[in-house]
Amino acid sequence: MLTNILSIALGAILINNFIFSQFLGCCPFLGCSSKVDTATGMGLAVVFVMGLASAICWVVDTYILVPLGLDFLETLAFILVIAALVQFVEMFLKKMVPSLYTALGIYLPLITTNCAVLGVVLLNVQNHYNFIESVVYGITGGLGFMLAIVLFASVRERIQFADYPECFEGFPICLVSAGLLALAFMGFSGMQIFG
C-alpha cells in the first residue's frame, strides 16, 4: 500500500510531470511564470485545488455516476464539480482564512478552467485509483506542477540578462527554454518504481 502510494507520488512529480510529459496546464505555466513569487502562489493554489478536486470527484464518480451507469458523463460532471468547488473554496477562504486567501490571490479563480485539474480527476478514473490514491495523485500532481512552474520562473528571471538573438525576444525564447526544460524531464520517462 505504502510503496504503491510512493510510486504514484514520485510518478506524478517527476516521471509523468503534468506539464513536461503530459502537457497539461501549459497556459498558467507560461502566463504566471515571469516571477518566482507569482509562480509559487500559482503552484500552491494548484496543489490545493487539485487535492480537493480529486477527493470530491472520486466521491461523485464512485457513488453517483458509476452506479447509475453514467460514466460517459464524467468529463461534464467533473467540470461542474471543479467550477463549483473553486468558487466555494474562494468564498470559504476569504471568510475563514484571509491570510491564505491573500496569499493565493487572483490565482484561485484562474484555476477553474485549468486543464491540469480536469486532467488529474479524469486520470484518477482511468487508472482505477481508490480514494486515498486519488487524493495522493491530485496533491503530488499539483506539487509536480509547482516544481515545474517555479523552476521555469527561475530560468525566466535569468533569461532577462542572457544575450540571445533579437528575433527570440519575449515569448519565443520562453518557449525554447520551456522545451529544453521538458527535454530534461524526459530523462525520467519510462522509469518504473517498485516494479
Partner: peptide, 13 residues
C-alpha cells in the same frame, strides 16, 4: 443527475 448536481451546487454556493 446533471440537473440535480447543478442545482445542489448552485444552492450550496
Amino acid at each position: 443527475v446533471l440537473g440535480a448536481l447543478g442545482a445542489i451546487f448552485g444552492a450550496v454556493l
